[in-house]
Design a protein around this nucleic acid. Sequence first.
DNA 1: ATTTAATACTACTTTAAGGTGGTATTAAAT
DNA 2: ATTTAATACCACCTTAAAGTAGTATTAAAT
Lengths: 137, 137
Amino acid sequence: MQLSNTSKYTIRILAYMVNHKDTGPISAKELSENLTIPYKFLTKIMTELTRVGFITSTRGREGGFQFLREASKITIADIMELFNDAIKDEACILGIESCNSKKKCAMHDQWIKSKVQLQKMFKESTIENIAGKGDKI
Amino acid sequence: MQLSNTSKYTIRILAYMVNHKDTGPISAKELSENLTIPYKFLTKIMTELTRVGFITSTRGREGGFQFLREASKITIADIMELFNDAIKDEACILGIESCNSKKKCAMHDQWIKSKVQLQKMFKESTIENIAGKGDKI
DNA sequence: ATTTAATACTACTTTAAGGTGGTATTAAAT
DNA sequence: ATTTAATACCACCTTAAAGTAGTATTAAAT
């Protein structure tokens, strides 16, 4: 019952990028060192984030990554979606295919309540608005 | 962001057992067939549930499994705990070791709210009280 | 006693996530 | 032109969860 490492890393990466967006492209090296994320794994993530258009990359010396989509338009839910980590509407907590409001699993009602609240939270949390919060850790 | 298959299976198994507790021991075969859980994987789970004292087993013909601990004393949180699936109090959603109320990660406040609600839900849901609910699916 | 139907145990295979290594490509700085 | 510091790509390794296979043990029914 937790996020994938890939989603966790991505959130921290993008939040870091918001907090350092004035000084030109940010390199994978800087991100890896400051966020203690394995370099090679991080570059794989960055390439993917570039591919889907969250960020752009500039190759070569002085290159790195910058936002393409506005940070206020990227939600935690978007990131979870990207890495197949999302809580889908139809997802049954007991993994039952045919579970829905007409034919419920044993935990349906409890779970619906929690699920809606979680989904809302993840959807309302944008990279922009979390980046300012929290301490530098 | 979901339960492990092992936890999902266990919840369904124990709920089924509550709903069929009058007719003596329930065999792994019956559980496997009625819940469409792979037989061999299910027996592994049953052995574990026996080992930790949720249920007892009787070997040999006419044998099977029965509750040892009362179903009203087994919560979803207990099951998640057993299979290393629990949402621990100190668990940071971004996976940061040193994250706590004094030194917060960027998502700390949002997550705390959801986390508390989830933990409460899982703790208050006992096998006994979910077993009666839902449709037979 | 033997058969049958059950659990228990041990070891293996498969799958997906997480992580690593090496090389090609790119572009600024020299 | 060459060096240097960056991303991109491709293939591999590791780990843990999920699932499978075979055999030993147990006890009721015959």
